[in-house]
Design a protein around this nucleic acid. Sequence first.
RNA 1: GAGUGUGUAGCUCAGCUGGUAGAGCAUCUGACUUUUAAUCAGAGGGCCCUGGGUUCGAGUCCCAGCACGCUCACCA
Length: 494
Amino acid sequence: MTTENSNLAGLDQRTIRIEKLKKLENMGINAYPHIFNPDFTSKALNEKYATLANEEQTEDEVKVAGRIRAIRNSGMFMDLYDDTGKIQIFSSLENLPQSEKDVLALLDLGDIIGVTGTVRRTKRGELSVATKHLDVLAKSLQVLPEKFHGLQDQDTKYRQRYLDMMINPDTTRTLIMRSQIISAIREFLNGLGFLEVETPILHPILGGANAKPFITHHNTLDMDLYLRIAPELYLKRLIIGGLPAVYEIGRNFRNEGMDTRHNPEFTMMELYWVYKDYNDMMDLFEQIVQYAAMKVLGTTTVSFDGKTFELGGHWPRRSMLDLVKEETGIDFEAFETNAEAVEAAKKLHVEVPENASWGLVVSTVFEEKCEHKLMGPIFVIDHPKDISPLTKEHRANKRLVERFEPFINTWEVGNAYSELTNPLDQRERLEEQVKAREAGDDEANMMDEDFVTALEHGMPPTGGLGMGIDRIVMILTGSLSIRDVIAFPTMRKK
RNA sequence: GAGUGUGUAGCUCAGCUGGUAGAGCAUCUGACUUUUAAUCAGAGGGCCCUGGGUUCGAGUCCCAGCACGCUCACCA
């Protein structure tokens, strides 16, 4: 058997690797074996032999495994990486049997191997495993991106995320933190006695938010279905059924634009808690974010894009009308009619439809004039009633509802209410939505008779809260694009 | 959807006013039992995103398309 690779000259790198794979097979080696049991990770090995002196050699035989990320001195040194770090493999030509030398010559960067050998520390101080036996665990047929500059191409990073993860440690770190943040949220809510539930993703009727949907079709029922834009109306049915505290963490789908803060499918946490109102929800929102921040960062002081956010303590709570007044000098509360409000918006150079309602004007002016200044964290509270069809009327102001949106870094990171529980009121508001839809607003809610019927059976006073998980993860991980916190973001077909 | 930028070797990038394509890493060969972005010498490797056009001649200029980034619009 030859270890000579000169016959490979000029071939492309994948072909070369396939030829090497054939040579391994000809040597009776299965390059994709069923099992290998390493007894140390990089971290565990380094911890156990932390005190081993330079040039000290042990007789301790260990088995380690990982991906080859560097080969130096014609194979004498290899850097093996597992998820905990690096292990240097030392293969001395003097002590290595010919059969092992033959395997060594057929290894490439990117191959996953297992090494059986003895533990030593080199004179340069690098803890190493001195090879006795090499196992090929997976021959890699593809070339890894360059080690120094890494993988830069955004397209490849998103489409071949595994490469991004192998090469860029921050990518893996962010995805791990995402998982930890979601675990922390579950842990916190479960600790309060919440029940995690699952509700349908295929919805026959659109509801729970204002957004354009994805439409799909069920063949057997011969029926169009919507991918949910929000789980709200189903979660409320569970409250009506008697569950006192429920939450769901899952994907919502909205058929709208994509940018650094929007992905067509995104992860939302929604919860409902009986005998609570939106004030309680504000306390709860703060606590959830603070708990998650402490879990993954150990602090509630968060650095993001050169800015610092203090997420600890109570966040300011400011009414939308106050913020608009502060910013524009106009007190929209003083306007009795829609026309007056529209007139005022025009003076501010904020475009609104000629027939816009008072509430739509207020929220549009808020979005145009205030939102981009809200570094937060801050709760914007008490929204206009006519833009909030599922929210209970404000106990002190009939034109408003008990609703809030938390903002961090000018981003809306959630939405919460004292939930509307009056079925007759709910029916009227949904009828308004239906009218808006008929008038061409394809983001308006549809009439959900079954939901209103459920409400008619009686729903206790309830606080509800939605949290945009992706954006919270962005803030806590310092990610500038939502695509960096989603392992496989939506991409155009290539 | 609009504007704008990018697309060249497996990867990261050069390529000026148009003249037959370059580097580093990776690959192959050799040297070196030494290292840690190992080093040294040599070699191979290109549908220059796609399709049109201008030109004697296009990676380069023009038009269209595709993909991605950024900004804006819609939205969470």
